[in-house]
Structures are given as structure tokens and as C-alpha cells.
Design a protein around this nucleic acid. Sequence first.
RNA 1: GGGUGUGUAGCUCAGGUGGUUAGAGCGCUACGUUGACAUCGUAGAGGUCACAAGUUCGAGUCUUGUCAUACCCACCA
Length: 881
Amino acid sequence: MLEKNYTPKDFEEKIYTDWENSGDFKPDMRSDKDAFSIVIPPPNVTGVLHMGHALDNTLQDILIRYNRMQGKNVLWQVGTDHAGIATQMVVERNLAKEGISRHDLGREKFVETVWKWKEKSGGTITKQLRRLGASCDWDRERFTMDEGLSRAVRKIFVHLYKDGLIYKAKKLVNWDSKFMTAVSDLEVIQKETLGKMYYYKYPIENNPGEFIHIATTRPETMFGDTAVAVSDKNEKLKHLIGKNCIIPIINRVIPIIADDHADPEKGTGAVKITPAHDFNDFEVGRRHNLPLINILNPDATLNENTPYSGLSTLDARAKTIEELERLGFMEKIEDHPMVIPYGDRSGVIIEPLMTDQWFVDAPVLAKEAIRAVEQGEMEFVPKSYEKTYFEWMRNIQPWCISRQLWWGHQMPIWYGPDETIFCEENEEEAQAVADKHYGKRVELRRETDVLDTWFSSGLWAFSTLGWPDKSEYLEKFYPTSVLVTGFDIIFFWVARMMMMSMYMMKKVPFKKCYIHGLVRDEKGQKMSKSKGNTVDPMETIEKYGADALRFFMAAMETQGRDINLSDARIAGYRNFATKLWNAARFCEMNECKVVKNFDENKVTLGINKWIIAKAKQATQEVTRNLDAYRFSDAANAVYQFAWGAFCDWYIELSKPIFYGEDEAAKAETRAVAAWVLDRILIILHPFMPFITTELWNNLCTERDCKLIHAPWPKNEQIDEAASADIDWAIELISAIRSLRAEMNIPASAKLNIILKDAASCSQANVKALHKLICSLARLEKIECAETGFQITPDMAQQVFKECTILLPLKGVIDFAAERERLNKELDSLNRNIEGYTRKLSNASFVERAPAQVVEEERRRQAEAEEKRAKVEEALARIANF
RNA sequence: GGGUGUGUAGCUCAGGUGGUUAGAGCGCUACGUUGACAUCGUAGAGGUCACAAGUUCGAGUCUUGUCAUACCCACCA
């Protein structure tokens, strides 16, 4: 027996444990069924589940469960990401509480500490994914720093290096002074800030009293200036080109050069050039062979090349300004809105810094990745995202992959005594190659840098399936079927996976890429910890159940749009679950038991034929929409059917049978109700796996299979004609209810209704469905009027299709109100008829619109006119009262 | 500066290829404890589909422009 109340907490965890322990999430490796696979976007091992994960993983689980029920061989490959900077940060923070820095521990000990932390605390998010119902194959859980995945990293690194696609270079890179590492362009975020523009002057060498005026937002960088640039098209300043000027304070002489980087229209027209600390200036410096002067230490304090060694940039700036003012070179300071680069993790200002770093030749790798999408080997859903992808890929810059961190994949690079580079998959090989190279045993030094986290994530689609080993999983499940992820990660991850996979596997990593939006707060604001508007999905699950949260995500997911979280709406889907629970209880109470091998095509009763046709229609709608990744349409189709058709109508229609005497009808209806409820559980399962499983297990104990493996119905014939009479009755009942409500007739009053002008088929319906109509419309009886029946004025009248519903009210009728009601209807009919007539009297419409459309318009016009005549008649009848 | 979305009921949003009287949930109004369910039922009110022009027999849907709004990329001495 089902409990009276729906309490998801009672069974969600129990059901999940059973699935996991029974191996229900595992693919059958001996089967030759079609494969369907998804690799999870690996959450950071430090992560806790947020609403974005809840959305992303709900969508994946819906696809996984749907395809599993479709009979495919399904693998959802799960795992976590070591998240270099993020994890190192968390562990360092923990150490700091004990007053320890990572340097106190040393590299080896520190990495050991991180591993310990990972073993102890790294499983939070995977536990949370289980609460959400994610049906991943946990036995295959991977971690980007696993032995296997690390081997994949080394192998592909060596491959790329030997192909000349990874190289070391001294370049200006984005330097994060908090973590003291290089970061990639993508890890830098630009923030609007109100800064200051400083105008000051450099004296011209050997020309006392002559100056060149410059403007900068960062005066402290002047100690790294190696030129001042002026455009040779700048009439006012070009006479200075070729002369030298003197940097104040340090009195270093630098040339004034001609370069179009200096826009005559901007600033003062003259630009100080600091090649070691500005990406544009770096290019200018290269063009003119200017020396590079580095003025910063790795922690972004000024170095000994400046007078303010040891000061932070901001303190040095203050000093510089003070000194320029004291010496009389400062001219003015203005407020200046500007954009400043910050590290996305560290939050500190990113400094361009000259360092030795390692790069992947992304422009070369991008070529194949672009081609694969151009030729449709991988498709974005929605398609419009391929524009974003192409735009970025076609303008891609070399990817800086080296990080001066301790937590991550140490690069498989060894240096010989003369700095010769040996790149091999492991130390033994490197040693062997080096020994051979030098002709003797040499001491090697390993590169200390680790790789950007996204390097290993880029291999995720094949490294998790076993590459570089020969693996039956790789054989069966690669390329994966679809990747589901947010648009914010297209560049970080999708693009890199495409590049790495096309390079190494010569095949796309996934055939489709479904991109969804962001989960925002109730007001549409981006959720963030700093704003304090985040909602913890675990609390939502606790409050409403995982099914309600999942259904919310599915129902709100429409392509190309963000989702605003709505507590009321999630509560609404919890109510939907409650409704379903109670419908199941109704079935249970009326002994609706699943009949094995029940042939739903052999039912005889109208309502049963009707609900079976509707159930099949709903199934097809869900199928069609899931196949097209239209999650909200699919979810709404189940919702409408379960609540709108099954609960609102079928259960009500079945009551006269269950409370009646016809045992044969009862037996059939019991079987059908059970069949339909079963059908609802099947098509709802991908969205609400917990409640559907709980009901499935309760309503029948002798199942052929678990719901999670229940076959998804396909290729069903729908007998639409068979249900026309019930559709008619439903419309009639609605019309009568509407009339009752408008006449303010109490629900308890049992009425007698007369149906005038009923066509023979309507008469037949009234006769056949008499009991049912009376029960649902709360009537004593309904009968069809004989020909020549006279309507008396004390009858309320409602035109319904070809007939008129007559409701005798024995003198209590309010004629004024009745006239108003009928006139309102007349107005609306007139408006419609006017529209039809206008269209049909338009010669070109009749001529050019398809015959079908014109015909349909004619039919509507005729129908409305017939109805209008009846309403007019009705009005005439009460005209004198 | 380049690009991409969005603008439909009080609120949050659906409306693949143009064709009934533009839909849903929440909220609102009235009635209701009818033998699954008040986490409910029945009925109802509520919309110039941002604006303008165009294409078309016909535009919420297609084109162009305007306004509003959100985001992405690049740059800003």
C-alpha cells in the first residue's frame, strides 16, 4: 500500500542505492546494441554541486535514461578534474590556518598533502550527483591525475612536442602574481574600473626647455621604457622623431621612434614604449629592435631595475607621481575609465611579464577542429553556437600551457647538462635518450612546470575510455554521442577537446554538443557567492525532492536561453509529483493491477480507447522532442498528459464505472488504468526517476524488468477516430459546467438538461454516454428534444456545436443577465465572422492561398454563422422579458 | 570597435518549416471539502506579441531600421 502522503525523502536514497548496487548504470559489454555515450564535464574535485551542475547533469541524465530505455547500450562516463589552481588554492588555504605555507613543506610533501586532501574531501560532489539521480557508471569513475590519464597526458605531450606543436619560448605572458604562475588568455577577466590618466613630459636630450608630452595610466612602468613612439603622420610631433629624450627620475636616455602604433588622435600623440610590460609595446619593440627591461619581480613588486625596488606597483606609482610632481614634470591627472585584467581565480591584477613558457601551437591544431564542424562531423545544438566557435577558433593564439604550480601534471621534459631538451614519456626513456645523445651517463634535471588543467581535460573524451591502451570501451563508445555543457566553457573545454581529439584520434570527441544557458536567481541576476544570491541544490532537494528539481530544470530548458530559478515553480513540480502519487493511490484503491501481456488494442469501452490513444500520442510527443533535444516540450508533454488527460479526465470518467455494477467494464477499466499509469511512469522516468520507480515497484510486484530498463514504446498505431465520442462528451461537459458557473448554480444542484437540434451522432453519444455525462456535469438527466420542441423563456440557452443546450430554471432566470451573456457571445461571433468574411471576399486570398486553407476558412465561416443564427434566435425568444 | 541573444498576460516563460479565437505555470477573481489528491477541483478575468516600415492573399513567426536589455570577443598610451 502506498503511503497517504508523497515524501520523496522516504525512498530516493534507497532507490539510488539499489540501482548502483545492482549495476543498473553499467553498459553490457557483450551486447552489440547501438551504443550511446556521454562523458560528464568533470566537476572540480574541490567542487560542491551548484545549480549549474544540477541543470547540466539533469539534462545528461535525461538523455542517458531515455536512451537506455530505447534499448541502447549506454555509458555515462563520470569523473572529476584535478583543477590545478583551484585545488592548490584550497589546500594552501587550509595549511595557512595552521600557519604553514607550501614552501615550508616543499613540493613533494605539498603534493602529498593535496592527494590526502583529495582522498578525504574530494568526493563531495560525486555524492551530490547521486542525490540528483545521475545514473553514471561509478565503477568507471576517473580523475584527471589518475595513473592512466596521466599516461595519456604524457603520451600526447611527447607526440605534440615531437611534431613541433609544443614549443618553449620566452614571451610576454599573463602573469598571476598571487600564484606566481603564467595563465592563459582565457583565465584573465577584464573589469571596468575608474582609473586615472597621468599626463607628464620627458625632456628632449640636448634641447633644454623642449619636452615630449606623454600620457599613461601606469606611470611606474616608465622605468621600463625603452622608447617613445610618434607617428610619422603626426605633423605636430614628427620633427621629434630620431631625437632622444630622457626618462625623469632615473635620467635614462631613450630614442623617439616612428611607429603607427602611436595614434595622433589619441592621448598626446606620443606613446611611451615599455616592451617588457605591455603586449602592444612588445610588438613595437620587436619592430624596432628595442631592448626589454623587466621591472617586476614574480610577486609583482618592482625590482632593482627601478628606484623603488620592493614596492608594490601601487606604492611605486604613488612614489613616481610624487617625484614627477616634485621635479615639475607632471602636467595633469584626469579620471579615466579603463579596463583592468584580473586573474579569474586569484582576483589579483594580471601583469604582462617576460618569462620562459611552453606553448601549444593552437592555430595549427584548430584547422582540423574547424573543418570537422564545418563538415558536420560535430554539430552544435543550438546551431548558432558554431558561430561563436568558429570566430574564436579562427583567431586563436598560441596556448600557454605551462604553470608554475605544484599541483598538476609535471611536464615530461628533462634538461641535459647543456640545457638540451629531452621530451619522453618517462624518466627512464629520457635518460636512455640523453645518455645516447651525450655518449655517456649524464645527470638530467626535470622541468618543474606543470600543465594547464585544461590540457588534461582536453583529452577527457578518450583518456577516460582507456586511451592510450587498446580498450573495448574506446572501441564501443568513442566518439561519444553528445556533450552537454554550458556556453561559458566552449572555449576552455569544447574547443580544446576538439583540437586534441582531432589531432590524436583523427575523430571528433562527440557527435553533438548541446549547449545550455546559465541558471540565474529569481530576478534573473547571475548567481554568485559574493552577491549572496546562490541557492544550494541540496537544500532544494531536501525541501522538494530531487524529482521536482530535475523536472523544473527540464521544463525550463529551452534552447538558447538562461533559466531563472523559481522556488514557486519547483514547488509546482513537487505538486505534480504529489498529484501523480495520489493518482497511483486511486488506482491502487480501485484494484487497477497491471495485466501481463495486456493488449491495449483490444479494449472496447470508449473512455479506454480514448485514454490509450492519448497516451500513445503523448509518448510520441515526448520521443520526438527528446530526439530533438527539446527538453521543455518533452517535459510539458508528459505533464499535460499525466495531469490534464489522465488525472483531470480519465480518472473522473472511470469513476462511474468503478462505482457501478458492470463487472466486465470494471475489469477492462482496471486493466487500462494500470496500463496507462504504467505508461506515464515509463515516459516520465527520464525526468523523475525516483517517484516513477517507487510507484512502479509498488503497483506491481511481478515485473519483467526494472523501470530503469523498461523498453521505450515505439512504432505504435494510434486509433484517433475511436476516441471522437469522448472528445465530444468532454466538450459538452465543459460547456455545461461553464453554463452552470455563469448561472451561479450550486455544485450540489442536480440538473435536467435538454439538447435541442442534436444531430443523430450527438443523439447516439448522449444515449451511450448518458451516465458518464450526468456524473461529470452533475446532472439528473440529459435528453435530446423531439422535433418541434418549443423552447420556453425560462430556459438558459447555450449554443454547443450544432445543438443548443437548454437548462430549465423554473422562473429564477435573470433575463437581463441572460441577455448580456448571449449578447457577449454574439459580439464575439460577429467579430470572428467579420474576419472570415473579409478574408474570403479578398479575391487574391481565394485565388492564391492553398485550396485547403480557403476551404477551412469557408467551413469556419459557415459554422460561426450557423451558431450566430442560434444565438440570435435565443435572444429573440427572451426579447420581451 | 566586432559579434551573439532577448523584448509575447501582473510575474516567469512556451510558441521547429508564415495559415483556427496567440498558450502554460505562478499570481488574481468567484464557487467548491463531489467516495485519489486543498501540495486539490470547477469556472473565469487578463495580451495593439517593444516600435516603425517592408515582403506576402495572409506576419508573434520572414526582411530592414529604431529603441530597450543581456552577454561574448578585442582594444583603450
